[in-house]
């Protein structure tokens, strides 16, 4: 007998996190597809998941595979991820969110994924490494480098905005 949660409960507990991860990896347009692929695949494998497993880490790992598949498909057919504009969607009129997404999209892939899985998906570095390949230390470094770049880029943007604002006043 299994003591697993009904899968409907898994979706309602972790659906939002998985969607954030998908958006951050493949961008807002393909995120819904990545989300669906993730949960269909998870549903298929769910009965065999060991009881007591970290369900969110498991889902983020599946989301990683599905998102990478979509990225590869997109690259084969057309534009690389970094060129996909982080178009403001209905709910993201906050300019800082849009900026950060664009900055995130420009990070080298391993840095971007490490940042997203650790800071959005909540995966410990051991799990980040299991998802992406490589060692936990390498995952930690990739995330740290990614965050450092984001901070730097963000402060440049912020300074740019301050300068523009000053010009606007004068």
């Amino acid at each position: 007998m299994s003591d697993k949660l009904p899968f409907s409960e898994v979706v309602s507990r972790h659906g939002a996190t998985v969607l954030l991860v998908c958006r951050a990896v493949v961008g807002p347009v393909d995120a819904d597809d990545a989300w669906s692929e993730t949960f269909v695949s998870a549903l298929r494998a769910y009965p065999a998941l060991p009881a007591g497993a970290n369900v969110e880490a498991w889902l983020v790992t599946i989301a990683h595979r599905k998102a990478i598949d979509l990225l590869r498909k997109a690259r084969r057919s057309a534009t690389p991820m970094a060129d996909v504009p982080a178009a403001p969607t209905r709910r993201t009129d906050d300019p800082s969110v849009v900026d950060l997404r664009r900055l995130l999209a420009r990070l080298p892939e391993r840095q971007r994924l490490a940042v997203v899985y650790h800071y959005v998906g909540g995966l410990p570095y051991a799990e980040v490494a299991a998802a992406m390949g490589g060692s936990p230390d390498a995952a930690r470094r990739a995330a740290a480098d990614g965050i450092a770049r984001l901070r730097k880029a963000e402060s440049i943007t912020a300074r740019g905005e301050t300068a523009r604002a000053r010009e606007g006043r004068s």
Partner: peptide, 22 residues
Amino acid sequence: DLAGLFGTPPGAGELAALGERL
């Protein structure tokens, strides 16, 4: 501070629609 900026949390309606399709 950065984590909150990676995206606004998805709305309930959006997740419900995804759930129906699933």
